[in-house]
């Protein structure tokens, strides 16, 4: 036992890169731990997708300081465009992901440019991004050539990886895992790069940053577009997995969930939001299966209470807790991203 403990301690001390590596290894073999059960894989894939949005949201929310509630809009755009291309034009979902990502970034630009140009901030920015979700939902509800009120179904295929359609959920699990990993890399690189620095300076003091000659609009817009691209990809993967699309995929709940998880996880913190996201979404799913079946919605009431409590009593979220914890067990020599 002591031998094992020593080994673990040594392994932990070995390299701080080990933490993400261990995590990656666990994520790799998780489908087998779950016995390849389609239902559990479905749930874990959902968690991966929603966590990807939370991580990407850090760009605009955590670093850019804009409380964006448009996640549901970009997620929905990804779902509908990818689905539309698959259903009506037989275009592979892989291409659909790219196209819908570009389309979402385009919409983000159309909305973001005037918003930042006219200095829409704080509550007004949050509200206008939330309005975007509902406007897009209704537009696609009326636009019957593309979506309309009827669900559209993607042709069934047992396993067609080139078309991005599979009867086995493990396929979507690994696709989502890859997206999450890519999102981590992108966010990390942006954070470490010039854009991240400028964004943080904007968040700390927008006027000061502007006076120092930072092109506020450009960096905010860049963050918004990268984030919307990723959110759209989650929508595309989602719609291919469930096999249909519908305008209700423009879901304001996704926006609200993303923002609350990101803030409760620690605004601008690198590991806090995804860790909290995975934990809370898993808890939520567990509660949904246990108490949610008895009293509908109770699991989300619990979810809501947890969030209000975190925000009231730990306004910085759980990020700092994770830092001090990981320092204690020697996982990291210093917080990965200082605040």
């Amino acid at each position: 036992m002591a031998e094992a403990e020593r080994f673990v301690r040594k392994a932990v001390n070995m390299n701080r890169n080990l933490f993400p590596l261990l995590l990656a290894a666990l994520a790799m073999v998780l489908p087998f731990i779950l016995g390849l059960n389609e239902y559990y894989l479905f749930l874990t894939t959902l968690i991966l997708l929603y966590t990807s949005i939370v991580v990407a949201w850090q760009l605009i929310g955590g670093y850019g300081g804009q409380l964006d509630l448009g996640a549901g809009a970009y997620h929905g755009l990804g779902a509908i465009i990818t689905g539309y291309l698959m259903v009506y034009h037989g275009i592979s979902g892989w291409l659909g992901l790219i196209v819908s990502g570009l389309a979402a970034a385009g919409v983000a630009f159309i909305i973001g440019y005037p918003s930042f140009r006219f200095g829409i901030r704080e509550v007004w920015y949050a509200l206008s991004s939330l309005a975007l979700v509902l406007i897009l939902q209704k537009i696609f509800l009326l636009w019957t050539d593309v979506a309309g009120p009827l669900e559209r179904y993607i042709p069934y295929a047992a396993f067609d990886p080139f078309f991005m359609r599979s009867g086995y959920k493990a396929f979507y699990y690994y696709v989502s895992l890859a997206l999450l990993a890519a999102t981590f890399v992108i966010v990390y690189r942006v954070r470490k790069g010039k854009t991240g620095l400028y964004l943080l300076s904007i968040r700390e003091n927008e006027e000061a940053a502007e006076m120092l000659g930072v092109d506020i609009r450009k960096y905010k817009l860049r963050a918004l577009m990268i984030y919307s691209f990723i959110a759209a990809m989650t929508g595309g993967i989602y719609t291919s997995m469930v096999g249909f699309y519908h305008p209700t995929l423009f879901d304001s709940w996704i926006s609200i969930q993303t923002v609350t998880l990101a803030i409760a996880g620690g605004l601008g913190h690198f590991w806090g939001p995804p860790i909290l996201s995975v934990i809370l979404l898993s808890v939520q799913e567990y509660l949904r299966i246990s108490v949610g079946a008895v009293v509908i919605g109770l699991h989300q009431v619990i979810f809501g209470i947890i969030l209000v409590l975190i925000i009231l009593f730990k306004p910085d979220g759980i990020g700092p807790l994770i830092d001090s914890f990981s320092k204690k067990i020697g996982l990291m020599k210093a917080p990965l991203v200082s605040r």
Partner: peptide, 16 residues
């Protein structure tokens, strides 16, 4: 953020 938490709470309370 805090009032969005209230949104989550009230909406789901009503649902429950």
């Amino acid at each position: 953020a805090a009032t969005v938490g209230i949104v989550v709470l009230l909406r789901n309370l009503a649902l429950a």
